[in-house]
Write a protein that binds this DNA or RNA. Sequence first.
DNA 1: ACAAGTACTTACCCCAAAGTATGTAACCAT
DNA 2: ATGGTTACATACTTTGGGGTAAGTACTTGT
Lengths: 117, 117
Amino acid sequence: MTAVKESSTRNFNKGIALTSCPVTFVMEKIGGYWKPIIIFHLMSGPKRYSELKRAIPQITEKMLIQHLKQMQNDDLVRRDAQAVVPPVVTYSLTKSGQDLFHVLNSMVDWAVKNGSV
Amino acid sequence: MTAVKESSTRNFNKGIALTSCPVTFVMEKIGGYWKPIIIFHLMSGPKRYSELKRAIPQITEKMLIQHLKQMQNDDLVRRDAQAVVPPVVTYSLTKSGQDLFHVLNSMVDWAVKNGSV
DNA sequence: ACAAGTACTTACCCCAAAGTATGTAACCAT
DNA sequence: ATGGTTACATACTTTGGGGTAAGTACTTGT
């Protein structure tokens, strides 16, 4: 009966970082290999699920919907479905999602200046 | 003939993301729970190893040096050691590291506006 | 003699995120 | 009736980031 193990110095640390560090808060939302790329593609306007898939060929379908769902929960992305015969589902950025432009942009600026290697 | 397994769709994807996505490039450098926090503490000026340790009590020593080393390799942080009796090692931000201020700041701005929940 | 401080290093474990593979429901064209 | 398209779902495996715990070398204070 080796105890419940508490399993969570990790979660505790995550907690303090999240509540005490706004940067970590943001990175929770746009972290993960694919999220920034998905957001980037949605910046140019609403896209269908299949359009996103074709625009990002390397992503698996699992990762694509998984991230789209997380971003819906985080209110970065809106999903609009038409109950038609072959389903038509359109994803677009919410206001919060669009506001991320400034964040991503400052990252790009930094990368351009400091991406020499 | 189920292929050689390649061991690395992961690394391959990481590769394309890194070379094709400047945002991912940046997140590789400031990602991880502790890096933004360490950078934040170094923003207010150079700090000794033990000062950082005390400033961020929850971090383990392993994580602290690990991240400090990575950030040295990424040229975000400079290490200055004095060869004195009890070692004195001082860490400070490089120009690149200081430039991250704008990036972190835009994240904070976004978090303040969209961190309601 | 022994604890305490300074700046690390090393071996080991755990879990959650990412990837693989396959299935599903509804319809349409051939 | 068979295959293709659309938008998912779900079970299983892998991997690497993060954590735990302990050790090192050298010196000062008591």
